[in-house]
Structure formats: C-alpha cells, structure tokens
Design a protein around this nucleic acid. Structure first.
Lengths: 345, 345
DNA sequence: CTGTTAGCGCCTTCAC
DNA sequence: GTGAAGGCGCTAACAG
C-alpha cells in the first residue's frame, strides 16, 4: 500500500462516514446537535483516517484561533517562567493554547510581535512590555483590537492588568532597615521605565522621607537587569569613602551580582553590610547567610492574568466591562542578611 | 469620523492603490517582479491603511506559517529558558516566529500539543519530550510530517537532534571524586526515561567500574525534578549508618534540595561531604562554598537546534539529507565543594 | 436534525 | 508586468 500524501480534509471524512461536510464540522466543533448515530459514524471515520482539523482554515473561517500569546522580555528569567507556567495551566484548561515570545526588551521587536500576533493569529494577549514610555509600542498596543492583560505594567485603559504591590514591599523593606538603625541605605534598581522599578523606588523614597533621612543620589544606582552590571555597581558603591551600611537590591536578577560584588570586596553579610533581595529564589534561600527578601506569589499573578483574559474572551470583546486591575501583595521574608549597622561614626 | 471596524484586506489596499489584488500580494510576499511604480503605490496604501496581512489566510493558501514551535517540559526551568532564548534569536533572524509550550512532562499533553501543532499551525518543531519510552508520543512523533529537531533526546531517525555529552561529563565528575579518594559516592538522578538521566548514570557507572568500585544500589536515588524530593532523598541518604562521602547531583533542579538537605543535617561541605552539581547556575557559583559543577553551553544548543531546523525548512522537507546529530561537550568546573573524604574506617 | 452553499483573506496559476 | 479567477480547508447560515 503506497503512502498517501494528500492531506485528509472534512470532505474525506464526510465521504468515509457517509454524511455531509456540515455534519462532520458539527461534531468536530461540538456546536449544534447531531444525532447519536451520525456522531458515531463521524468519530469512527476521524479515527480511522487520522483526521486532524487544519487550524488555519478553522481560524480563517471562524475568526478565532483558541490561542493566546504572551510577550515577555526574556523567557530565561525564572520569574517569567513561573508566571507563564501558571498562566498556561489555566488557559489550557479552558482549551486555549499559549504562545510565548520574548522581546529581549527591544521595542522594535515588541512592535513587530504585536503586529504579528495582533492580526488574527491569536485571540488575546498577555503583555509585559519593556518600556512603558515608548511611544511606538503604546500606539500599537492601543491600536490592537485584541483583549490585553498587562503583567505588572500600567494598563492606561488599554486592557486589564495584574500588578504587584512593589511600593508597599519596598516601603516595608526600607523601614525594616531603618528600624535596625541604618541610615545609609543604597539601592540598586532596574530602570524606572517600567512599573516595578518605579514603584519600588517610590517605596524606598517614601520610607526615607518618613524617617527624615535625606535622599542621597550617590546611593541610588539604576541599571539594567544583567548581573554583570550589578556586580560592578556594587563594587563601586562599596568603594565610597562613606559607604552604605545596607543595600536593597530592587531588581530581580541582580542579587547574584550584588553578592559576588560584596564577596569580592571582603565584606561580611550581615556584620559589615546588610542586604535585602527581591524575588524568592533558590539563591536567596540557600545563600550563607540566607537573604532577607521581598516575595510575592508570582504563580498567582499568572493564574489571575489568564483568568482575566479568559473572561474577556468569553464575553468576546475588549469592550463590555470596565478595565480591571488586580493587585497582588508583597511580603518581606526576614532571614539572616540584615543586622544593625556597626557603630562607625 | 466614525471608527471603522471592518478589517482591511488586500482588496482595500488594491483599491486604494489603484492596482489589482494580485499586485498587492506580489509586493507583500516579495515574490515575482513588480514595477517600481506599483510597489510605491502599494506600499503607500499599506502604510496609510495600516494594513497587516492575515496570517491565517496566508497560511491556508501557502501551507506555510513561518512559525516554529518548541515543546519543553517546563518553561520555568531556567535551562530551558536559555535554550529557548538562543533558539528564538536565530529563528527570528530568519523570519520565523517561535511558539513555546510547556508539557509539564505529561505525555497526554505532549500528544495533544503535537497534534495541535502538527497540522499546519507551524512549519517545524523543536522537541524535548518527557518520556522517551512512551509509545503514544513516539507514534505521534513518527506520524508528524513536520521536520523535528530533538533537544537532548534520542532522535531514532524521526528527525535531527542536538544532544549533550552527559555521559562524558558524569564520567569525568565521578573519576574526579574517585581520584580524591571517595569510594561511597551517592548519586541523585532524574528518571532514566529521558536521555540526560540515562547518559549521566551511564557515566557514573562506568567510572565506578573502571576503578573497581562495586555499584551500591542504596547509593542511587532516582527522582523527579522537584527540589522537594531531592531534599528528602538527600536526608535519607545521609542518615544511612554507612553514609556516602560524596554526592553527585545529576539533575538540573536538584541542587537546591540537596544543599538544604545537607545543611539541615549539620554536615559541612566539603569537609564532611563532597558535592558536585549539574548546570552552572547562580546558586552553584555563589554558594558557600562554590559548587563544583558540570556545565555545557546551553545557548549553543539552542542556536544549533534552530539552525538545523532552518536547514530542513529551507530544503523544505523532512526528507532530503540524512538525519543529523550534533553533540555538545560537557565540562567539569572545579570549585570548592569537593575534598578528600575524612578517614573514617 | 442534516445536506447545500457561500465565502473567510490570500496566493497563484493563467491569460493578457 | 499586471488583472482576473479559482481554490486552500473549514464553518455557518440556509433551506429542507
């Protein structure tokens, strides 16, 4: 028997089952009623022929793809991974497939992806763009007809959002350090062009203000997410004549760089310097000493994002209800990386 | 001016530009020659109307989607993330979009995804399935017409593969420990149903055999990738009357569990117990002491996989050349987590 | 309940 | 070089 190479279509199934295309389609989609007999016939035919519907054709006709895309800066960031895995689980239950693309924080790539996805390839979007102030991206986002859920970004009415309460977290962390007696608290923060950076910095500043400690710009280092830069910035910070007694690491991927920076400068944690990290990673938990860290339920963020999107998808419209925002709390996990500062004055 | 809601099509563009559909299509796809004048006209119309081609329709007609999917067990595994990010970069340059889906190591989900993707949604697949011995998955894989590149799995002629030389790595690591004087070397390994587990264990056994050390089944713990289980298994291992003097952690995500297991049993690394990890993570690098680890260039794996797939895609067929396999070497990064065993006999 | 019939938006021979 | 026309595989709106 020669290997057939023609792809099998509804028509083949219909013929094989002795019914019409329409009937086959009905049992495939599960919409409308079909007699039990026809259903059996069709299902048998599908099985025997090994028929699988062509999603392109389905999508072209129905204008839906049962598919959702997520845009993140970088898949290899474990935090994104957890978020996505959780979102995917919820989406999957609802019969949706999740496509993930990373933008590598390049706005041009975001625009390209948004266009690629925005024109019928998927039914909805989960977005965490790399620069909230970028005009181009904002414009494409606004132009998109698809429902969007933002992850830790300001939605500006362009869709729903699940946001993390970084402000309160940073506030609490800074207060904790101040309570321990610290006055020179350095902070390494990701760019303020995205919400997490802005909010965390805001919390830090608020705590300082509260305590009447003047803000020292020398103690604030804004940097990208690479641990390379965290390392060098940490070293620079520690070489100051009047070095900080504590450092808060407000970027997710920075802890590694900060820790090696401190290690290489011969300082001891927490005797010489206190440190607070963000994101409850293996590294923070298993470091010697374990690092006091800000944490939040990132899996929950993913689940919530997925559910919000599904709600829009079912109510099938970007319209309908008002744009919603869900806020996820942040908690300070106190471990052993903070102590009162040495009396040095 | 009322907001138009009809989606714009080639026809709209054609009218706007005063040419025919066919001409528009030609400039969009870039195939066939078009007069400079027509091209200008069309491009202007596209810009003014904000036209974006409908990928569904394009795909339906052309039978290609310029799209590739990757199936991994879990996006939140940083190693997969690095692999995927690298692959995506190469794919992107070639004009392909990468979709990532995680299977959560469930064969049923793999089958479902393979079917979903296999029928025209994408042009090619990168696969790292969760159980190489699963019949169903193997069958679907074999039935797929799409070109496949396997990541660290046996291809069995079903496609190309990029594989890591875990065997040599484990062999070297075990030899190293033996050279240090260890005889009771425990090993925590992921299930042997996937290649990495099998190969690493093979290397371990080979080193033992070479040295004339009998294999003690009590010292081999096979477990899933969760650090929970790594923790408890480690504790169990250490409570043996005749406990191991070294442990090799052959699973990527296990190190965290192993380290906390050791910490909570009060043992010191490397004085009381030597340890070798896999995968060059922040945790391994920054732990006190830094953990000697097996490493390999996982980004390179991603790039190679992408390139192999692109080669098939261009030669557009699963057929053509023979199935290829690329092997990536493993290296032992010696740090400070291993020492000669205490004399205890 | 089921068969028939239009297209969905685009690409791609065909003639011209 | 360009316009016209057919159809990719499927769904949905119609009759029956």
């Amino acid at each position: 028997m020669p290997a057939e190479k023609k792809r099998i279509t509804v028509l083949d199934v219909a013929r094989h089952a002795g019914v019409s295309q329409g009937t086959v389609s009905r049992v495939i989609t599960g919409k409308n009623w079909v007699s039990e007999e026809s259903r059996q016939l069709v299902e048998a035919a599908v099985r025997e022929l090994g028929y699988v519907p062509n999603p392109m054709a389905q999508g072209l006709k129905s204008q839906r793809s049962n598919t959702v895309a997520a845009l993140v800066s970088d898949i290899s960031n474990p935090l994104h991974g957890v978020f996505l895995a959780a979102a995917e689980e919820v989406l999957d239950e609802a019969g949706y497939l999740l496509f993930v693309s990373s933008t590598h924080s390049q706005p041009e790539r975001e625009v390209a992806l948004l266009n690629a996805y925005g024109s019928g390839r998927v039914d909805g979007l989960i977005v965490a763009h790399a620069d909230e102030s970028n005009k181009q991206v904002a414009q494409v986002l606004k132009a998109t007809k698809l429902p969007i859920v933002f992850h830790d970004r300001e939605s500006h009415g362009m869709g729903d959002a699940v946001i993390v309460d970084h402000m309160s977290g940073a506030l609490e962390a800074t207060r904790y350090l101040i309570g321990l007696g610290h006055k020179r608290i350095a902070v390494l923060t990701p760019a303020s062009k995205i919400r997490p950076g802005r909010e965390r910095l805001r919390g830090y500043e608020m705590a300082l203000k509260e305590a009447g400690i003047p803000l020292d710009p020398m103690l604030i280092a804004e940097l990208d997410a690479s641990s390379q830069e965290a390392y060098s910035q940490t070293r620079a910070l520690l070489e100051h004549k009047h070095r900080p007694t504590a450092v808060i690491c407000l970027g997710t991927g920075m802890l590694a760089g900060v820790l090696s920076g401190i290690a290489s400068s011969g300082l001891k944690v927490p005797e010489d310097i206190s440190i607070i990290g963000i994101g409850d990673t293996d590294l923070a938990r298993l470091h010697t000493p374990p690092i006091t860290s800000l944490k939040w339920d990132i899996g929950e963020c993913g689940r919530v994002a997925a559910r919000m999107l599904l709600a829009r998808l079912r109510g099938d419209a970007k319209s309908g209800l008002q744009a919603e925002t869900t806020r996820v709390p942040v908690e300070l996990m106190i471990r052993h990386s903070c102590a009162p500062p040495r009396a040095r004055y």
